[in-house]
Amino acid sequence: MPTALVTGATSGIGRAFARRLAAEGHDMILVARDEQRLRDLAGRLADRHGVEVEVLAADLADPAAREPVERRVADPQRPVDVLINNAGYGTSGMFWDIPGEQLHDQLELNAGAVLGLTRAAASAMRERGSGDIVNVSSVSGFFPVSGSTYSATKAYVTTLSQGLATALAGSGVRVLALCPGFTRTEFHERAGLEMGRLPKVFWLQVDRVVHEALADLRAGKAVSIPSPQYKALVAIGRLIPQKLQRLVVTATVPGRT
């Protein structure tokens, strides 16, 4: 059986990827901080789908703690066929109001962990001549969200993924940047963002996001933007001046002032 490793597997998009890939017959490696939640999910996936599930509890914002995960991804004796880099978090408030330690942790998790795990996977997959990497980014990475370090980290993830997809073309290794819009998960509540003003049309269902991502990956695309409304938003955003982009985003993104 092929093996898939999913970070941030206990909730949201990561959990949906874990369920979908296990249902497709992948053995699973689940990574997150909460070991009990990981084991609960592992038991359900194993019972329902008859797959083997390995649990790795790690805080990926800590470079030392993520080293064992990077080694597992790169292990030639136990190859990882699919890597889903999903772990990440946002913050509420402006850049200068957020503690520096929190910003550093966010950068390490959202960008540093993606860099380390992607490098480990890409090197091993390139040698084997096959493999898939999905780096979960965000539509916000296309726009200069006022005071947001989250959108800056996601811009990095998207650009890194696009560059690797080009560099690995023809190698048998596929790399995708998944750039969803607002998706119904625990993410916004954990970040302390007030989302009550957002129209329903902009909310995505997590299983739809995962379905479109895998379809785009298997079609050979380097970027996946689920749903017509967000595809249109990004396309229009590329046509208007950045100064106008900043004004529009500042006025409309919930939780920003």
Score class of each variant (00 low, 15 high):
A4T: 03
A4W: 00
T7Y: 00
G8E: 10
A9D: 06
G12E: 12
A18V: 06
A18T: 03
A22N: 08
A23M: 11
G25L: 15
G25P: 06
M28Y: 00
M28F: 01
I29T: 01
L30H: 05
R33H: 14
D34V: 04
R37G: 06
D40V: 15
L41R: 12
L41P: 03
L41M: 05
G43C: 13
A46K: 13
R48L: 08
H49D: 11
G50E: 07
E52L: 11
E54S: 09
L60R: 12
A61N: 04
A64S: 09
A64D: 14
A64C: 08
A65Q: 13
E67H: 14
P68A: 06
P68S: 09
P68Q: 02
E70K: 10
R72H: 04
R72P: 08
V73E: 08
D75K: 00
P76W: 02
Q77N: 11
Q77L: 01
P79N: 09
P79Y: 00
V80G: 10
D81C: 04
L83Y: 03
I84S: 06
N85F: 01
N85D: 13
Y89M: 15
Y89I: 06
T91R: 13
W96I: 13
P99A: 07
H104K: 11
D105S: 11
Q106N: 04
Q106V: 00
L107Q: 11
N110S: 07
N110M: 09
L115M: 08
L115K: 09
L117M: 08
L117N: 01
R119K: 14
R119W: 03
A120T: 05
A124E: 04
E127C: 09
R128K: 12
G129H: 01
G131V: 10
N135S: 13
N135V: 12
V139Q: 02
V139M: 02
S140I: 13
S140D: 12
G141Q: 07
G141C: 15
F143T: 07
S148I: 09
S148P: 05
T149M: 08
Y150T: 14
A152L: 11
Y156N: 12
T158G: 11
A165S: 15
A165F: 12
T166S: 08
A167E: 12
L168S: 13
S171L: 09
G172Q: 05
V173M: 04
A177S: 01
A177Y: 03
A177I: 11
C179S: 12
R184G: 05
T185K: 01
T185M: 10
H188I: 08
L193P: 10
R197C: 02
K200I: 05
F202C: 06
W203V: 13
W203K: 06
H211I: 00
L214R: 15
A215E: 14
D216Y: 03
G220V: 07
K221V: 09
A222P: 07
S224V: 02
P226L: 07
S227L: 11
S227T: 15
Q229S: 08
Q229G: 01
A232G: 03
A232D: 02
L233W: 15
V234M: 14
G237T: 14
I240P: 10
Q242E: 10
L247A: 08
A251E: 02
T252L: 12
T252N: 14
P254H: 07
G255T: 02
R256I: 11
T257P: 13
T257R: 13
